[in-house]
Design a protein around this nucleic acid. Structure first.
Length: 421
RNA sequence: GGGGGAGUGUCCCGAGCGGCAAAGGGGGCGGACUGUAAAUCCGCUGGCUUCGCCUUCGUAGGUUCGAGUCCUACCUCCCCCA
């Protein structure tokens, strides 16, 4: 249920609604009033299951940013504690357990990217970052059960989607994971006590966890807490956001280059452009309306703007400009742009002549020489923009272009420059 | 504790009388068509020094000329009984 923005008086809820990031809300009227009259502290928790967040989390990050822009205080909660337990929501099978060392390393790696989206500090609307391991690790089992566990009915826990879906599909659910919702609920209460946090935000799959936290807060702390969820973001064709052939679309530059990040946004489906501009940029509504109504090939202009804006926000102006320029030269001029991935090889090896399949594999263009062979057979591999048909073709210094490199390509979009050294 | 069932190509789902690099989907990638889009059609979707060799079907052994397929033990999960 998407609510028209005019229903809300507070700038924050109005903004979320306008941007398509409002799915559900507990006591919308009460929260709306609260947001108008005081600084509200709100949080979102992030798992530490990987060394980087990916764009599946980007909508959540944008929500925290919008919370801050609306004058409120965001808390980024790193799930250093809850990741040790594993959230069963939306997953069919049990995740393999990460070691404490892995979780800690992931946490350190993830935290950096928030600085690009939020302003941290000590002011009333400055963001703070905390790790729920700070309090979860120290819990004592029996006292915790008596203080918190008694407020949870197993009967009701079994009806929560995260649990119910597993059971219905005969998928295993360990007792460890079963506890996740209790810990997340407890997080909310702990954040209320420590920071006066009264709002939890999250994806729609977190609704149950959020409501549990609100209930628990009322029971153990007489707190009036609120919850807001945002829609699960999918592409127009229904796929989950962010999976590509190479894997997830990571936010950390060392996991996915700014150029590839830019390309991801440049290549979204037509039908997604307007929605993504609203979700992932801060362009004004009027401009987005104009862009999404561009027809035919002009739609590409809207995609470039989407790519520029999203890349700029994550990686900065310089990286976004570089990516755009590299793309322009590669695709619009069909030329050779320095921004493309470059592979260096000893001049001597090249002078002897090297099988193309080997070079494609070495340079990382293809995963194996066998894959390179298949691409050649399928007419998908090019040297200096010319298709190669001979599986046994060799490459040598004679293939250097005027720029002194050899451009290898697979498909329209994947290129590597081979440079002799 | 007892009985029954399941684990297949490291993207997923899923067939598989002892001859299997292993059916079929989905997804992905490449080609054609386009606008670096969608839809459609075609092809590919273990590795290598490729007329051949090597590694794969939960783990470890065994039977066999030959095992994903049979036997034994173990691990994990599901269901039923206690």
């Amino acid at each position: 249920m998407s609510n028209p923005s005019h229903q809300y008086r507070s700038s924050f809820l109005g903004l979320l609604a306008e941007r398509g990031q409002l799915q559900d809300c507990t006591d919308a009227g009460g929260l709306d009033a609260r947001l108008q009259k005081e600084h509200v502290t709100g949080y979102i928790g992030f798992d530490c299951t990987a060394p980087s967040l990916h764009i599946g989390s980007l909508s959540q990050i944008m929500i925290l940013r919008r919370l801050q822009q609306s004058g409120h205080r965001p808390i980024v909660v790193m799930g250093g504690g809850t990741t040790k337990v594993g959230d069963p929501s939306g997953k069919d099978d049990m995740r393999s357990l990460l070691t404490n060392e892995q979780i800690e390393a992931n946490k350190q790696s993830i935290r950096k990217c928030f600085e690009r989206f939020l302003t941290f500090g000590d002011g009333p609307s400055d963001a703070i970052m905390v790790d729920n391991a700070d309090w979860l690790d120290k819990l004592e089992y029996i006292p915790f059960l008596r203080d918190v566990g008694r407020h949870f009915s197993v009967n009701r826990m079994l009806t929560m989607d995260s649990v119910k879906l597993r059971l219905e599909r005969d998928q295993p659910l360990s007792f460890l994971e079963f506890n996740y919702m209790i810990l997340q609920a407890y997080d909310f209460v702990e954040l209320f006590r420590r920071y006066g946090c009264t709002l939890q935000l999250g994806g729609s799959d977190q609704w149950g966890n959020i409501v549990n936290g609100i209930d628990l807060g009322r029971r153990v702390a007489e707190a009036e807490l609120f919850g807001v969820t945002s829609p699960l973001i999918t592409t127009a064709s229904g796929a989950k956001m962010g999976k590509t052939a190479k894997g997830a679309v990571w936010l950390n530059a060392d996991m996915l280059s700014p150029y590839d990040y830019w390309q991801f946004w440049r290549n979204v489906e037509d039908a997604d452009v307007g929605r993504f501009l609203r979700l992932f940029t801060e362009l004004p509504e009027a401009e987005i309306t104009r862009l999404e109504n561009l027809g035919g090939a002009e739609r590409n202009e809207a995609k470039k703007i989407l790519a520029n804006e999203t890349t700029r926000m994550l990686h900065g102006d310089a990286a976004a400009n570089d990516a755009a320029e590299t793309a322009r030269r590669t695709f619009e001029e069909g030329g050779i742009a320095e921004g493309l991935p470059t592979f260096e090889i000893e001049r001597a090896r090249l002078s002897e002549g090297l099988p193309l399949t080997t070079l494609a594999q070495l340079s990382g263009l293809t995963a194996s020489s066998g894959e390179a062979r298949r691409f050649i057979q399928g007419g998908g591999l090019r040297v200096n923009d010319e298709a190669v048909s001979d599986v046994k073709a060799a490459v040598s210094l004679a293939d250097l272009t005027a720029e002194g490199v050899i451009k290898l390509s697979v498909g329209r979009k994947k290129h590597v420059l081979v440079k002799p050294v």
